[in-house]
Design a protein around this nucleic acid. Structure first.
Lengths: 196, 196
DNA sequence: TTTATAATTGAACAGTGTATAATTATGCTT
DNA sequence: AAGCATAATTATACACTGTTCAATTATAAA
């Protein structure tokens, strides 16, 4: 048809991301289909290319959206947390991944083709999570940390991520690991204690 | 045709895994194609299903083969290592991943469908790497470690893996992290120092 | 030499992402 | 208000994908 008034460009973006997110949660990245997303949104495939340029960019947008939800999830966990906010963060990281394994895995399984870049807003969504962690890390470091704290916080995230990644991908199951959350928390504690 | 004498069943397996490995190194998991592997091996698609049962099982076999190469790579690094064997392991982990990003990523990006299981030999290939690390961790722990050492060693691997995963997937690039290897090594050192 | 068996193929099927020509609804101009 | 230019949307086409399966063919056993 032609330009429709029922959805603006931004509404279309949001619609495709929402439907795509739902499909990703159901099927995972390997069985993700642009045609199926379009069908659910009530549009044809071509519209995805009109709005996002490529399927890769739609998936990138879906994944950036996941970061948004994830950050909100962690903020809520922190609100209802007691004194041990570091534990809340670590457990929150795992909890989100385990509750949304396909959505979470898609973030790390998908890679943009060379040359393709992330938009500014998408980038900011992804960095937000780091900021949350950095704040909490600063709070438990003597003197509120130093200039190296951002790097240190990123490194702690990577540490937890490694444990979580092994858990979700099944590597830990092969190694008969029973308590990866506990291990991750132990490592984080040890590294935090070493900063002084 | 019929049963051919030019390749035994095991030779066929090895042939497909070798050609598949090469294709994976070139294209990565997302652009991997069973038909292309078959073509390179000089057989038709159907033979893959005759030998492996499904494409997923071929990919699993390719990934298990990667573990074999990876373990050998680490053993060589350890041979030419000086006193700091832990550093050699951490740097070796990263080096292999960075030299073979597509092959390495395929290990973690691919997940077997529910119900499908890994064969015994394949499983042993994957566990071998853990054993290498465990030995080296024991060597630097006071009293050669204890009953918790296997778990601790796996946790250290996960820690390094997290940093490496962020590096290869591009997450660290987004966060403008410059020295993930150094960070990983720092964390490992801190955790090792805490065990006493 | 014949027969039975197992390996291999090639075609079919229902999907996929991407490109593009054709169509259609809208906003602007006259 | 009518017509036109523009941009959105669709439908179709293309070359691919994984998977299944009947037909074919080479081998081992009888």
């Amino acid at each position: 048809m032609g330009r429709r008034s029922d959805h603006s460009r931004e509404e279309l973006r949001a619609l495709f991301i929402a439907q795509g997110h739902a499909l990703m949660a159901e099927k995972g990245l390997a069985a993700f289909s642009g045609r199926e997303v379009a069908k659910r949104a009530g549009y044809s495939v071509g519209t995805i290319y009109n709005v996002f340029g490529s399927l890769d960019q739609l998936i990138a947008a879906i994944n950036s959206h996941t970061f948004l939800i994830w950050a909100e999830f962690l903020r809520q966990r922190l609100e209802s947390a007691g004194e041990d906010r570091i534990r809340a963060l670590v457990e929150g990281y795992f909890e989100f991944a385990l509750e949304n394994p396909r959505i979470w895995s898609a973030i790390y399984d998908h890679r943009l083709a060379e040359g393709e870049v992330l938009g500014e807003i998408e980038h900011s969504h992804r960095v937000e999570l780091t900021a949350i962690v950095e704040t909490e890390v600063r709070a438990v470091l003597p003197g509120g940390g130093g200039p190296e704290t951002p790097r240190f916080a990123r490194s702690l995230i990577a540490t937890v991520h490694g444990h979580c990644s092994y858990l979700v991908s099944g590597s830990f199951a092969l190694l008969e690991e029973s308590d990866p959350v506990g291990s991750a928390l132990d490592r984080v504690r040890e590294c935090l204690a070493a900063q002084r």
